[in-house]
């Protein structure tokens, strides 16, 4: 290896290191400041858990968290069920218009949420669905469905269709084939899809912002309102909790999906 090559590699590694610093610095600082007793973020840090204690007593934020959790769980359950069924059909059968159906999964992902969210608001009002819990679940499931189907389809590509045929020729009915042969194979992607759906819903701000009723909102909408009113250290604390939880969830998903892919 020439000295120049070695130098370029060192520069390259340094660059990646700086990018990681750029990505994590604000998050780390936010986390540190959430443990700072000074509400004006004075340094040096005076360690304290005041803001976490206050947070626990903030009924509005606790309510919003539980509401978000409820919606995310419902979204994960519904999107995983409907999405897994759809991905099985897309894998198993040949039919006209299959390409179009696959292409239709892209708009909910590719169109900015501002457009989708405002369109949902206008339409749901127009047909009498309105805003609130049911509107939020309706919207969140639609955003999560494509992710579930795409993740499952990627896993199904590694599945040999002959296994289904073998089970069928041995007398298994369609449901038995699905439950005993296909689903065990795609279990990692079903779980990964469910976790994705949960994350899409729990972190969703834009669509929730338009579909939540002013009285009862989700956690991200509540945080947005609080930020616009002014900085409060309590928001640091709740933000730190969210970011740690959502990163842990994704780390878990990545590990889980990886393990599934290796066997």
């Amino acid at each position: 290896m020439s000295p120049l090559t070695r130098l370029l590699e060192v520069v390259g590694r340094l660059f990646v290191g700086l990018l990681l610093a750029f990505l994590y610095l604000p998050i780390v600082i936010m986390g540190l400041m959430s443990f700072n007793a000074s509400p004006f973020y004075m340094l040096p840090i005076e360690w304290s858990t005041t803001w976490y204690v206050q947070l626990a007593g903030n009924a509005q934020l606790v309510d919003a968290s539980l509401y978000s959790l409820k919606i995310a769980l419902a979204t994960a359950l519904i999107a995983t069920t409907l999405g897994t069924a759809a991905s099985l059909a897309l894998f198993r059968y040949e039919f006209k218009g299959k390409k179009i159906l696959q292409a239709l999964l892209l708009p909910p992902i590719a169109i900015p949420w501002l457009i989708t969210g405002t369109a949902m608001l206008v339409f749901f009002f127009g047909v009498g669905i309105g805003r609130g819990l049911h509107a939020l679940i309706l919207g969140h499931v639609a955003l999560a469905l494509p992710y579930v189907i795409i993740v499952n389809n990627a896993r199904l590509k590694t599945f040999a269709p002959e296994l289904e045929e073998a089970a069928r020729s041995l007398g298994a009915n369609q449901w038995q084939v699905t439950r005993r042969v296909t689903l065990p194979w795609i279990a990692p992607s079903v779980v990964a899809g469910a976790l994705f759906a949960f994350a899409v819903s729990f972190d969703q701000f834009v669509v929730s912002y338009f579909l939540a009723t002013p009285g009862q909102t989700t956690l991200p909408v509540e945080i947005y309102a609080a930020i616009r009113k002014g900085f409060t250290p309590e928001i640091n604390a709740v933000s730190t909790i969210i970011i740690v939880l959502s990163m842990a969830l994704m780390l878990f998903t990545a590990r889980f999906y990886k393990f599934g892919g290796n066997d």
């Binding site: 409907l82 069924a85 059968y93 040949e94 369109a119 949902m120 339409f123």
Partner: peptide, 28 residues
């Protein structure tokens, strides 16, 4: 017949997408 079987599995998911994404976009 393949299409029919596929339709049963696809219907709920795509009905949901139509109701929550494609109809709203058209209504807009």
């Amino acid at each position: 017949s393949q299409g029919m079987k596929a339709a049963q599995l696809l219907f709920p998911a795509y009905l949901w997408l139509v109701l929550a994404v494609f109809l709203p976009l058209s209504a807009m």
